[in-house]
């Protein structure tokens, strides 16, 4: 997103942080001079803050429980008390039509869903889950990918061959289908693998699934970087000093690939959040009564033509958050590692 002039300016900012400043501080200074990245970060902060304050909104402002159905509830519109759910007037008259947006924060600001639950409150709670799943699966994915990528690139040989073939297979597998396979199986029974126990309805399940399917996306470029490092002199020096493999990987290799991992983080968070919303939309992500932006879009699908606000609002939240994360991610890349080749370089 930066023009040549912007680049020159950010480079100057990097130097302005002083020659003694470490690479991380210089990168941070460059990032702070990148106007679009700062705006994106501020927007992101607002979204996160709003979602964190969800219980405050639900408890003190809207005074509603967004997780229990409220079929007989009422709302006040233009000073009159009206039922939240009305018998549908469209088609055969089957089903119910919830009230639309009232634009009154105290009473169904964005209307109700087909169970009479406050959409605005659900949107904020759903945002918590979407953001939480996006971020934690990105962290988990980057952590696993860093370990596997560094190990594969450092040891080479049969370890690398096995890991690389594994990456190839997962890479060739369409991600949504892999996620669907895992979700369908795990959603019914949960995951019980050795010491790891995750219940069927737990939010940790989509986190683990989404983290696993994207591991090759991060691990493959890291492995390439580590392989290029193997012939550098400082590594030979470390070997000559008798350092153990573990120490070399931790103290010499890891600091060199960490910038790339950091570049991946915001971009993976956006991608993972979008994947979560798609899986939830397909009903194999977050499970009811929990909400996420994806489940809310799905809830709104049946009401799209009568109460479009539900779907529109949730989709805008996903889209805006992803835009902010991607713009921020581009800024982080320009600041830390402009030559990082992520997926296809895009």
């Amino acid at each position: 997103m930066t023009s040549a002039a912007d680049k020159a300016r950010t480079a100057a900012a990097g130097r302005a942080a002083g020659p003694s400043a470490g690479p991380w501080r210089r990168a941070l200074a460059r990032l702070r001079r990148n106007r679009s990245a700062v705006i994106a970060a501020a927007g992101l902060l607002l979204i996160v803050l709003a979602c964190v304050l969800a219980p405050v909104y639900a408890g003190a402002v809207a005074r509603t429980d967004p997780f229990t159905s409220n079929a007989s509830g009422t709302a006040i519109v233009d000073g009159q008390r009206v039922p939240v759910l009305a018998q549908s007037t469209e088609g055969l008259g089957l089903g119910v039509t919830p009230i639309g947006p009232t634009w009154d924060p105290g009473s169904y600001l964005l209307g109700a869903d087909n169970q009479g639950r406050d959409v605005m409150a659900r949107l904020l709670y759903g945002g918590r889950n979407s953001l939480l799943i996006g971020l934690s699966s990105a962290l988990l994915c980057c952590a696993i990918a860093t370990v596997l990528g560094v190990v594969a690139g450092y040891f080479g040989g049969w370890i690398d061959a096995v890991l690389s073939r594994f990456f190839d297979v997962v890479w060739a597998f369409p991600v949504y289908l892999l996620a669907i396979c895992l979700s369908v199986v795990l959603l019914t029974s949960g995951l019980h693998l050795g010491p790891i126990h995750i219940d069927a309805g737990s939010l940790a399940l989509p986190v683990v699934i989404i983290a696993l399917i994207y591991v090759p996306y991060v691990a493959r470029p890291l492995r390439g970087q580590v392989m290029a490092l193997r012939d550098k002199e400082f590594l030979h020096a470390a070997v000559g000093l008798g350092a153990s493999d573990l120490r070399i990987m931790r103290r010499e290799v890891l600091p060199n690939v960490l910038p790339t991992v950091v570049v991946f983080l915001p971009l993976m968070t956006a991608l993972n959040m979008l994947t979560e919303s798609a899986l939830s939309f397909l009903s194999v992500g977050v499970q009811s009564p929990d909400a996420s932006w994806g489940t809310i879009i799905n809830d709104g699908l049946a009401l799209l033509y009568t109460r479009p606000a539900i779907t529109l609002a949730a989709g805008l939240c996903v889209g805006l958050t992803a835009v902010a994360l991607n713009v921020l991610g581009d800024g982080v890349r320009d600041a830390l590692d402009p030559n990082a080749r992520l997926r296809g370089g895009a």
Binding site: L274, S277, A278, F281, I297, T311, V318, G319, A322, V327
Partner: peptide
């Protein structure tokens, strides 16, 4: 390009 990687296609 940013919208391309950010908007959920089913929502669009």
């Amino acid at each position: 390009g940013v919208f391309g990687v950010s908007l959920p296609v089913y929502w669009l």
